[in-house]
């Protein structure tokens, strides 16, 4: 899937989870900047999985730290 389109969709999905309204860049980290705890991560990942009809296993999640890495991973998987 086109990276820009993926980016746009993920940005919309992340909004309800971005409680502090942090400005999101490619380098924004989920644990550090967005302060996602493990529960939030699980709910957020489930949203993305359903939106793109993919699986992001917890093993794969462990490799994804920043917003940019997530967009890359999802664009690849949703091909």
């Amino acid at each position: 899937m086109d990276r820009a389109a993926t980016d746009e969709r993920i940005r919309a999905l992340i909004e309800p989870f971005n409680k502090k309204g942090i400005a999101i860049t490619e380098a924004t980290t989920f644990a550090g900047d967005l302060e996602f705890d493990s529960l939030t991560v699980m709910d957020f990942v489930a949203e993305i999985e359903d939106a793109f009809d993919i699986i992001i296993s917890m093993n794969q999640q462990a490799e994804i730290e920043s917003y940019g890495q997530l967009v890359d991973a999802v664009s690849q998987m949703a091909d």
């Binding site: 699980m42 489930a46 999985e49 359903d50 009809d53 993919i54 699986i55 296993s57 917890m58 093993n59 794969q60």
Partner: peptide, 27 residues
């Protein structure tokens, strides 16, 4: 048990049959 093994681990929303079904379908 999941963490000790090497399988891919995919959780779904509590007691949600549809969420489970969808994830199984994507494997």
């Amino acid at each position: 048990g999941c963490a000790l093994g090497n399988a891919e681990v995919v959780p779904f929303r509590h007691n949600d049959i549809e969420a489970m079904d969808k994830r199984l379908g994507r494997i």
